[in-house]
Nucleic acid binder design. Structure first.
Length: 566
RNA sequence: GCGCCCGUAGUUCAGCCUGGAUAGAACGCAAGAUUGCGGAUCUUGAGGCCGCAGGUUCAAAUCCUGCCGGGCGCACCA
């Protein structure tokens, strides 16, 4: 914000006079509002008695008019307080910007590609994929708010043993239930994928238990690779069901992909890249396989092409990077996956660094944690898999049971928002303990609470006879401490968005929105009762309008819908 | 054994990258106010050797080292 800039620059000038050299001044927002709007520890860094140094700085500082006071505190911090006028001006500025408040040009014209979700056809979306999706979508939107040119990508494992297991299971189930492909094809999308899910579990279970089945599935796997006539139709139909159902889910989640990459498309290219670089000495041969000797650089040694000459995940990943670049010459490439493959990615990036240092330098891997459900148990063996769909439906079910008057469509938005918020409010990389009770609670640090507060602002504005557009702020009014407290808080929004984007931390945005919502509710709860005397109507409406916009924009950045009525 | 991540209030988590003031929230708990309820709302409060031990620093939850405890990964699955 240029408010902050002007203070910093003038302060640096003062410091230069005192210290005789240029020193960068870091202006921070103190944790306690009693410590002012901005604070700096520059006096502590210059040497000498910090309090004396601070006094000297203050003596020569030509304060911008927005600064009303500056004090020395503690060991030598300089605490700066802004004038009411400055705070009110920032409110008006935010109001003027409206929908643009929080947006910036920080990433203007930067091309950013984000790969996330990475779920596999023939299997249902698991809660882990859901988590990846939620993070990826939010990061995409954060970059979009900075005017980056963003493309969303998904990489899907459409081939491999898991597919063969599912296809095998399909055939068995179809025979048992005397159902044909056409018949199944008529069914609803949800039923079809439930069938696929069942088929996969059957195949996976029997694969473990029965040697004959194991051989059969292995043979089937090869046939799928070769697109053998025997399996072509069933494979392609199953894949179609899967991919169609994914779209239904993406629509529900509010996400949409620009690029779809299939693992089967990377095999050939991956092999070529590895073989070429084998000659250049990037890779080595060992036990008939081609490996990357990661141990030499403190990483794991990994196989890129196995002894049968087939590319592994790593080789395909090497092919994916240039493929993406060809489709969209990016400045930044972000890949979101579970943190269990962090070590693999380090190896892949190291290999890529030797092959194409530029691409490697643009790539950033983000590993997220696992979802823990304390109220239930995880069991993938029995078919009691925790699917994303189940999680969303369960949340919706619980919500409608408690709030029976809520419209179904709204309930779904709130349920999805509740889950998204619960997952985004903790830092990426940590495991998340998910609790329905806490996530769905309309009180406390939850998605529904933010959505509720947003809806409240909209209803306040709708009920007010006075149009906010015409609201003129009487700057002569004396604001009380509460009012100032909210003003001191909300104008940091653009800064928070910026920080969340740069460091991939949507959780700080959650914290901010929650704090703001709390302050607003506390303020409003009082004044709808007391009314008029202590605060001006214009001020309340203007504030409501700005807070509403921030909550709306903030929720959008998190990928959460903001209904105007709950 | 080696590598990576984690350990903060009863619980779930921020804060650690970039060291600063009294370590913050939420839920839960306790007390009070109000109320047409054992519900709702508001106010206040209690609750912390920041895993342990060293080191660096004017200053350490934060940086470094060692240890203890937990999770994950360590060559032809993704």
């Amino acid at each position: 914000m240029n408010l902050q800039e002007s203070i910093r620059i003038s302060l640096e000038k003062a410091v230069e006079t005192v210290a005789g050299r240029h020193v960068e001044v870091a202006l921070e927002h103190p944790r306690l509002s009693a410590h002012g709007d901005f604070t700096t520890n520059v006096a502590l860094l210059l040497g000498g008695n910090p309090r004396e140094v601070a006094e000297k700085i203050l003596a020569v500082w030509e304060k911008p008019s927005v600064v009303v006071s500056a004090d020395i505190a503690g060991p030598g911090f300089i605490n700066i307080r802004l004038s009411e006028r400055a705070l009110l001006d920032s409110l008006k500025e935010a109001f003027r910007l409206g929908e643009h408040f929080g947006k910036s040009q920080s990433f203007r014209k930067k091309k950013v590609i984000i790969e996330y979700t990475d779920q596999n056809p023939f299997k249902e979306m698991h809660v882990g994929h859901l988590y990846s999706n939620i993070i990826g979508e939010s990061i995409s939107r954060l970059f979009e708010a900075g005017e980056a040119d963003v493309r969303r990508a998904i990489y899907q494992g459409d081939i491999g043993l898991h597919v063969a297991k599912a296809v095998w299971g399909m055939r068995v189930l179809m025979e048992e239930q005397k159902l044909g492909l056409e018949e199944l094809d008529q069914k609803e999308s949800r039923e079809r994928v439930a069938f696929l899910g069942k088929a996969y579990v059957l195949g996976a279970t029997r694969f473990e238990d029965d040697k004959n089945v194991q051989e059969e599935i292995t043979r089937l796997n090869k046939k799928i690779y070769e697109r053998d006539k025997e399996v072509k139709e069933i494979y392609e139909t199953g894949r179609k069901w899967s991919l169609e159902d994914f779209e239904r889910m993406y629509a529900r989640l509010g996400t949409k992909f620009d690029f779809y990459y299939l693992e089967s498309g990377m095999s050939h290219k991956g092999i070529n890249i590895v073989r070429e670089n084998l000659k250049k000495g990037v890779f080595e041969e060992s036990d008939n396989a081609i490996i990357f000797p990661g141990e030499k650089v403190g990483l794991h040694t990994r196989v890129f092409i196995n002894s049968l000459g087939l590319p592994t995940y790593e080789a395909k990943e090497l092919a994916l990077a240039p493929t993406k670049y060809k489709d969209f010459p990016y400045d930044v490439s972000i890949i979101v996956t579970g943190n269990d493959i962090i070590e693999y990615f380090k190896v892949i990036l190291k290999a890529l660094e030797k092959i194409d240092p530029e691409l490697a330098g643009k790539t950033r891997h983000i590993g997220h944690g696992m979802i823990r459900l304390p109220e239930g148990k995880m069991s993938s063996r029995t078919g009691n898999v925790l699917t994303a769909e189940w999680l969303l439906d369960e949340a919706k079910k619980r919500l409608t049971a408690t709030y029976q008057e809520m419209e179904k469509e709204t309930a779904d938005k709130v349920a999805v928002g509740a889950i998204k918020y619960a997952l985004l409010k903790v830092s990426i990389g940590q495991d998340v303990s998910f609790s329905f009770e806490k996530s769905l609670n309309f009180e406390g640090d939850s998605g529904p609470y933010i959505q509720y507060t947003h809806a409240r602002t909209q209803s306040v504005l709708a009920n007010s006879k006075q149009k906010t557009q015409n609201a003129k702020l009487n700057v002569k009014i004396k604001l009380n401490d509460e009012e100032l407290a909210i003003l001191r808080y909300f104008y940091r929004f653009p800064e928070v968005v910026q920080q969340a984007t740069e460091s991939f931390t949507p959780n700080i945005l959650c914290t901010f929105l929650f704090d703001l919502a709390q302050r607003y509710n506390a303020f409003y709860n009082k004044h709808r009762i007391v009314d008029a005397e202590n605060t001006s109507r214009e001020f309340r409406l203007l504030l409501t309008s700005v807070v509403g916009t921030i909550l709306k924009n903030g929720l959008w950045l998190l990928g959460i819908q903001a209904p105007t009525k709950l």
